[in-house]
Design a protein around this nucleic acid. Structure first.
Length: 957
RNA sequence: GCCGAAGUGGCGGAACUGGUAGACGCGCUGGAUUCAAAAUCCAGUGGCCGCGAGGCCGUGUGGGUUCGAGUCCCACCUUCGGUACCA
């Protein structure tokens, strides 16, 4: 009987929906298990074959856990706000809500097609006002709280105000950017705007001036992504960094806990390391350096205060507020020129820059540990792009003797170097390693570095020059976007510019309708043009920025627990039942964004008593990316006699790279795509021209001839054109025209085959380019599996016979391997194990129900449709996905004898069989007697014999 | 640049804790079946030498630790992800 994937799959998909097989209740006697996939952004190109890799893996795990007796929450929804929908709206005029709804519909069809066991009654969409009401609500809680680092919890701003009114701000435990202290009287004397500014230094959600990528020509703020080499990717217009008032979240208040609590998570070490490096805790000292001839001081942060006597210059971030003030007349031109250069550079370029750049301000600072008249005390103040304004204090004391980067700077600009650490006792140590004895350092001389650090901090604190300080690389997260398609801020400003929260009863503040998505003037969001919406009758005006993508995605996993609640973001009962995500599956690309922000929001909600757990995601599995093949044709930038000219990749590579533009070619046009020899033949060139008619008159310079205006003129009588294309692996994306739709694969092979094939490709964690080589093997396997249940006439052929020992051993060995492998997320080896078992049962010609029925259950998580069909043919009324995973009986697996490989000096030379219980000594004696072994040890003394029971024997001669 | 990961036959990969490298599958070769093809089935398949028994080499490159290294350590090369407004 033929295996008809499509019929079977359609039948059971319908059955699952009608019978609500995957619906999960918040009340159950079974233990809970929460399996979550990372929130997809419903992009316009639809789901590609890379997305389901993680979804299939988590689905298998969720189904397996159900078979094992758990009440499994396995939901799905959409991170529906975002930039791409808005850009699409700009190009087409189609409202983001419309395109997003369309994309979601498509995603849903594609997800359903794969046979994933989501409880769709719990779907959430971040752009739905019923959802973002609670995103706005959480934002307001952040706005209304400050953080007390001593008690390690957020406290209401109202308490802070009460404290200010009584005592000023001197003795309050608060994570704050507030530098100046004030008394109760001074506080009371402040204007509302001044008070607002002070409170912004305490709030967990606050407003501050920060830098953005500003593109004048496009009139908009750009993401780093959209900026390449200082110009906008679209149109190539200049981009500069410009300060703008923006909302931020004070995630730095939680830095220490975000770092410490990583320990208790079952995440990969790599992932934890990336987060902890991102948080970047460093201990050191804050030190104030007075400026020569000025009242001003430069505040620096250094992890090596011990090297202060080796500080021969200072470097400020070019954005540092003091730069303007301290630059001398003579240096002004140079500094300004340098500022222009830096302004056009992205942060990433600045950090990646290997060349040394900088400018001298003309000002001098004084080493506070030396008398002002000491010749060593006066040190020049420079600016350089390698000092970033947001890290530490935006200023460093440069110690070229002990820091590689400072050293290169000193060499480049011919600045003095003072060695302050004698490393002669540590020949392995390099510049900057914290070892050695202090020299040329006054009071520190002779101390080991590790003793010098606390000693100098003590001295600095005693003299009031600074103090011990812990700094984090982690920066507060910018929370404003000058865009339309995001959550509006529930904030209004009074005529004095003071920010006021909306009353929580007014939530959600709905995004007003709009039909022109161009940015407003000064880079403000399109909302700023809706003056009726912005300006309120009482003279107040609304915030016109919207929230970023990560707002909605930082807490969605909680909403799934109780998605329709309109009194709370989720009920306390639901939160207490589901608690946290037991298994989270998603890509490493979220390591430092989403995963960190979610942990922060979760902790904040935990601190306020809303959620019972400290951490949202107990276990994390990172699925690899399935990459696409990107095919480029080389287009000569300069036209030839007015014609565009495409050049064969092999010819183009002999000429300078910059003379050609890379034009992505849809992979379906390219022959042998993804190989060294990928090419376009005449037929493909014609398809390409049809698709991009602007190239209909282009010249195609092939290796073996020229194609122009419909004719191919061969060189040397060659037949058929071969315009070689250049292949790369990279993201699957609409812009590269290389998206492979899972629907097409499923249409041909069925969803079960697609699922098993994606798993069979390799470990889920690994990235690899998509290829359908080998899918036939999985398809063949499923057909053979199906045919085991039927005789040649296509009749159901199972027998009630008792299975023999061999069959039982094969079955139970597979059940054991599969359950162990599922537990360790090794799904590819599970598929192999099923293949091996089916091969074995076919040679044994097994048609026994007692063997095949447990196999059907074990395979159900992988191939849910075919197993459901077979299960019902067994005569069961309910779903196979509600069955119990078969019990594993290890007694079938016990071996009487074991085969040992025998090595001489680590090289395998023979093998021999021994009883399973044989002791080491017996094995050793027997092994040495073997003929095949005697041959090797002849004439040489046996030095040692290593017997590893159950494993191997090694003889050393 | 910095942080993280990966590199094993012609290809995807297996080897879980340092113990028989290449399971399973694709592809390829030969055979069966067929008028023929598809499909299916059977056998072989890391490289080199050898009629054979067998031997030598082999897990990105170079070194090291060990009785024994794909696995551990050091250095390097290549590719991928992130680098704070793509999501």
């Amino acid at each position: 009987m033929e295996y008809q994937a499509r019929e079977i799959e359609q039948k059971w998909k319908k059955y699952w929906v009608e019978n609500e097989v995957y619906r999960v209740s918040n009340q159950s006697d079974r233990p809970k298990y929460y399996v979550l996939d990372m929130f997809p952004y419903p992009s316009g190109s639809g789901l590609h074959v890379g997305h389901p890799l993680g979804y299939i893996a988590s689905d298998i795990y969720a189904r397996y856990k159900r078979l094992k007796g758990f009440n499994v929450l396995h939901p799905m929804g959409y991170d529906a706000f975002g930039l791409p929908a808005e850009q699409y709206a700009l190009q087409t005029g189609i409202h983001p809500a419309v395109s997003t709804a369309r994309n979601i519909k498509r995603y849903r069809e594609q997800l359903d097609n794969i046979g994933l066991s989501f409880d769709w009654s719990r779907e959430v969409v971040t752009s739905d006002p019923k959802y973002y009401k609670w995103t706005q609500w959480i934002f307001l809680q952040l706005f209304k709280h400050y953080y007390d680092p001593e008690e390690q919890k957020p406290k209401p701003i109202s308490e802070l105000i009460a404290h200010f009114e009584q005592y000023g701000n001197a003795d309050i435990a608060a994570h704050t950017a507030q530098k100046e202290t004030f008394s109760a009287e001074q506080w009371k004397a402040m204007s509302p705007a001044e008070k607002d500014a002070v409170l912004m230094n305490y709030r967990l959600a606050y407003r501050q001036l920060t830098y953005v990528n500003w593109c004048e020509a496009l009139g908009t703020v750009l993401s780093n992504d959209e900026v390449k080499d200082g110009v906008s990717e679209r149109g190539g217009h200049p981009v500069v960094r410009k300060p703008m008032m923006q909302w931020l979240l004070r995630i730095t208040a939680y830095a220490e806990r975000l770092l410490n609590d990583l320990q208790e998570l079952a995440w990969s070490d790599a992932m934890k390391k990336m987060q902890s490096n991102w948080i970047g805790r460093s201990e050191g000292a804050q030190i104030f350096f007075p400026l020569a001839g000025s009242e001003q001081k430069i505040e620096v942060f250094t992890t090596r205060p011990d090297t202060i006597f080796g500080a021969t210059f200072m470097v400020l971030a070019p954005e540092h507020p003091l730069v303007k003030e301290i630059t001398t007349e003579t240096q002004k031109a140079e500094v300004e020129k340098y500022l222009d250069y830096v302004n056009a550079r992205s942060e990433r370029e600045r950090q990646a820059e290997k060349n040394i750049t900088g400018a001298f301000t003309g000002a001098y600072a004084l080493n506070p540990l030396l008398p002002a008249d000491d010749p060593r005390a006066k040190i020049p103040v420079w600016i350089s792009e390698y000092v970033l304004p947001d890290y530490g204090t935006g200023a460093i004391m440069a110690v070229p003797g002990e820091d590689e980067r400072d050293f290169r700077f000193a060499q480049h600009f011919d600045l003095p170097v003072i060695e302050v650490v004698d490393k002669s006792q540590y020949p392995e140590a390099e510049r900057g390693d914290k070892v050695g004895r202090m020299i040329h350092s006054d009071l520190l001389n002779g101390l080991e570095v590790k003793d010098a650090i606390p000693r100098i901090i003590e001295e600095i604190e005693k003299r009031g020059l600074g103090q011990k300080r812990i700094t984090y690389k982690l920066r507060d997260a910018i929370f404003s976007r000058q865009r339309y398609w995001g959550e509006p801020f529930p904030i209004v400003y009074d005529p004095e510019g003071v920010a006021h929260p909306l009353d929580e009863r007014e939530l959600p503040l709905e995004l007003p309708p709009l039909d022109d998505f161009k940015p407003a003037s000064d880079g403000r969001s399109p909302l700023a043009r809706l003056t009726d919406w912005v300006n309120l009758p009482n003279g107040y005006r609304r915030e016109t920025d919207t929230m970023p993508g990560y707002a909605g995605s930082s807490w969605y996993f909680l909403r799934y627990m109780d998605p329709h609640n309109d009194q709370n973001f989720a009920s306390p009962e639901a939160l207490n039942y589901w608690r946290d995500v037991d298994l989270y599956v998603g890509g490493t690309e979220h390591a430092t964004g989403h995963l960190l922000y979610s942990r922060f929001w979760h902790k904040f909600l935990h601190d306020l008593g809303y959620v019972p757990t400290k951490e949202p995601f107990k276990k994390l599995i990172n699925q690899g990316m399935i990459q696409g093949v990107i095919e480029f044709a080389y287009l000569q930038k300069e036209k030839v006699n007015g014609y565009s000219r495409f050049v064969c990749a092999r010819l183009a590579k002999m000429e300078p790279e910059h003379e050609f533009a890379h034009i992505p070619i849809p992979i379906q046009f390219v022959k042998d795509y993804g190989t060294e020899a990928s090419y376009l033949d005449t037929e493909s060139i014609e398809k390409f021209i049809q698709w991009r008619p602007e190239f209909k008159d282009a010249i195609f310079e092939c290796a073996n001839g020229i194609y122009h205006k419909g004719t191919f003129t061969p060189k040397n009588g060659a037949a058929g054109s071969h315009l070689f294309t250049h292949s790369e692996t990279g993201k699957m994306s609409k812009r590269y025209h290389n998206v492979v739709n899972p629907d097409d694969v499923i249409e041909r092979y069925g969803a079960d085959c697609f699922r098993m094939y994606e798993m069979f490709l390799g470990p889920v964690e690994q990235s690899k380019p998509w290829s359908t080589k080998g899918i036939d093997g999985v398809y063949k396997f499923l057909r053979r599996f199906w045919q085991m249940f039927f005789d040649e006439q296509g009749r159901w052929a199972l027998t009630q016979e008792q299975p023999d020992k061999k069959e039982l051993k094969a079955l139970h060995a597979t059940l054991k391997k599969v359950s162990e492998d599922i537990e360790r997320f090794s799904f590819n080896t599970c598929v192999s194990a099923f293949m091996s078992l089916v091969n074995e049962l076919r040679t044994l010609k097994t048609r026994k129900r007692a063997i095949l029925e447990p196999l059907v259950i074990a395979m159900a998580p992988f191939a849910p449709h075919i197993t459901e069909e077979l299960w019902h043919r067994f005569g069961h009324e309910s779903s196979v996905h509600l069955a119990d995973f078969p019990a594993i009986d290890e007694s079938y697996l016990v071996e009487d004898t074991l085969v040992y490989p025998i090595s001489i000096n680590g090289k395998r030379r023979a093998e021999a069989e021994f009883p399973a219980q044989a002791d080491k000594a017996t094995i050793e004696q027997e092994a040495l007697k073997l003929e095949a072994i005697q041959k090797w040890i002849e004439g040489k003394p046996v030095k040692r014999v290593i017997v590893v029971p159950g494993r191997m024997i090694n003889i050393v001669v």
